[in-house]
Amino acid sequence: MSALVVEQLLNGLQFGIMLFLLAAGLTLVFGIMGVINLAHGSLFMVGAYAAALVAQASGHWWLGLLAGLAAAAATGMVVEVAVLRRLYARDHLDQVLATFGLILFFNQGITMLFGRQPLLVQLPPGFAGSIEIMPGLPYPSFRLLIIAVGLLVALGLYWLIQHTRIGMLVRAGATHRDMVRALGVDIRALYTVVFGLGALLAGLAGVMAGPVSNVQVGMGEQILILTFVVVVIGGIGSVRGALFGALLVGVTQTLLSGFVPGWLRQVMAGSEADALGAALSSMGVYVLMAVVLLVKPRGLFPAHA
């Protein structure tokens, strides 16, 4: 395999991991509470902003990380208690509208506080350079860190869901919502905890995204739609599906945008090929999702068997 293909695969893996961090929380909230939360991307943005600002002010990247996680989790739990809790019994339409309202609120709020100028985030000390992972292929060590962190989170979630009491309730809640309620579990507290966990992971994704891409208003929505694609492809409520779907979407997207423009350039003018190539590779994941849904309407790993 050429170095270029390996590099693109790693980029795809890294992007997929970012998507997974977002999708894991979204799919749990989706599967357990039955809520479509469009504002999940806002938690990603809150995490990124908090991390960037604290890192700038304190000069410590790792302090920023903590701040990002705390801010996202806290925001998430406040949103759950103040707003989403009232929407569990509502239909999808109400949820879409209410959380659409939340997006406007958060985006504009951040703009008012910090302006439209993107924030630049330094790489954490020790991860500023590259590692030569194979001869002639240096790869940014921070991106490797993202991959490692993501895989650790996946393992941690697996352990949490398979081997803890909360996990048991989560699993039961995804398939037998009424049963869990009937068992007398404090479902409200469980929901808040699960939502906070999802928000924490979204915040983590935001923190990690900071040094790779710009921290700016609207960053949440760009990735939110792809996250929904991941959740639906993977099967709503399934963390395993979210991981698989995220990697599939991440790698597909990255490979398409890495190679399609080049292929097109062989048959048409450069600038047109680049534009069309970018468009076609962006369309790719949506085509993928449509095909998956038409073949398996409940996604690849449906949680509600």
Binding site: L87, D94, A98, G101, I103, L104, F105, F106, Q108, T111
Partner: peptide
């Protein structure tokens, strides 16, 4: 910053 106010208005309509 009108969207900052529009968001909660939409929320209020839903709730």
């Amino acid at each position: 910053n009108w969207q900052f106010f529009l968001g909660p208005i939409l929320l209020a309509v839903v709730l």
